[in-house]
Design a protein around this nucleic acid. Structure first.
Ligand code: SF4
Ligand code: SF4
Lengths: 146, 146
DNA sequence: GATATAAAAGATAATTTAGTCTTTTATTTA
DNA sequence: TAAATAAAAGACTAAATTATCTTTTATATC
């Protein structure tokens, strides 16, 4: 459903949202180690996200990637869109040509509500999403690491 | 989540389950046209399914692929396993290393029940699955075609 | 038995996704 | 202003997925 690229990107952005700010930046190397992602790969992925404004970065010593309240106005969906190009939630489960509520496949009643719940979640702003994680105690970086 | 290969295979098997029997066989060409799948690709995919016993086939004139009550004892999961190699439902949504009920990611409460429902469905025998489709009026081949 | 038919088998090609490596540019600090 | 640092940019390699093409084998029918 999601490519590795998207998964990596989402986790990285959320890591920055939770742990960084303008005075506390993280290099690609650190993020890669922390989230167990190939260094060069994540470095590439973060570039377009910076360009889009979903995360911030600064070159040079004491530079790195970081997150500002402004960055938090974007949504998880935006990350996916930047990385994948477009609507990843178009192609559905069995890849039928013209299906949907009126022509449901055998798993539509399972897939459709799942999709809409997920989409609702992914349409939250990153700031909200972060709040939620704090409140619900959900994790992205696992406790075993670091 | 599922590769094209799996999707194609599932749809083809279900098509045969619904429409074929030992006296009514369908060639790869027909199936491909009907389900809008590349001919050579589906022909390749069906081979291992026959070998496994999930569908039946006969060479020569009047030959083709078909479905018997015995074939119907297999499950959708078996199709996926044959095509993909193994447990496709292992790798999860955000690809975290050590997550789960006790270390949930932000979407675990959405993904976990979806996964278990889907797995329940895919663990039904193909005979049961077929029954279900007839009863619920769900489709795989769309009415527009043929 | 010869011929036609259709699956089985195998080799190959194209595309997408994943991952790596090198060079350039911006920024800080000494 | 020189050196060090880290992102940005770009070129490249590898692997998996998707798809195509060709040859062989089994079966039915004439
Ligand atoms: S789950 Fe719904 S949208 Fe997805 S393939 Fe089935 S019918 Fe189509
Ligand atoms: S949904 Fe559950 S199993 Fe899947 S990545 Fe999140 S925590 Fe892990």
């Amino acid at each position: 459903m999601l490519t590795n690229a998207s998964k990596y990107a989402i986790r990285s952005v959320l890591f920055l949202a939770q742990n960084s700010n303008i005075d506390k930046k993280y290099g690609a190397k650190y993020i890669a180690d922390e989230l167990d992602i190939p260094v060069h790969f994540i470095a590439k992925l973060l570039q377009p996200l910076v360009k889009k404004g979903i995360i911030s970065s600064l070159k040079g010593p004491n530079g790195g990637f970081y997150f500002t309240p402004d960055n938090g106005k974007f949504k998880v969906c935006d990350i996916i869109e930047v990385i994948e190009g477009k609507n990843i939630f178009d192609s559905c489960f069995l890849g039928l040509p013209k299906c949907g509520d009126s022509n449901p496949c055998p798993v539509h009643h399972i897939v459709a509500p799942f999709k809409s719940e997920l989409l609702k979640k992914f349409n939250m702003s990153l700031n909200e999403f972060k709040e939620d994680m704090d409140n619900l105690g959900t994790f992205l970086t696992l406790p075993t690491k670091k």
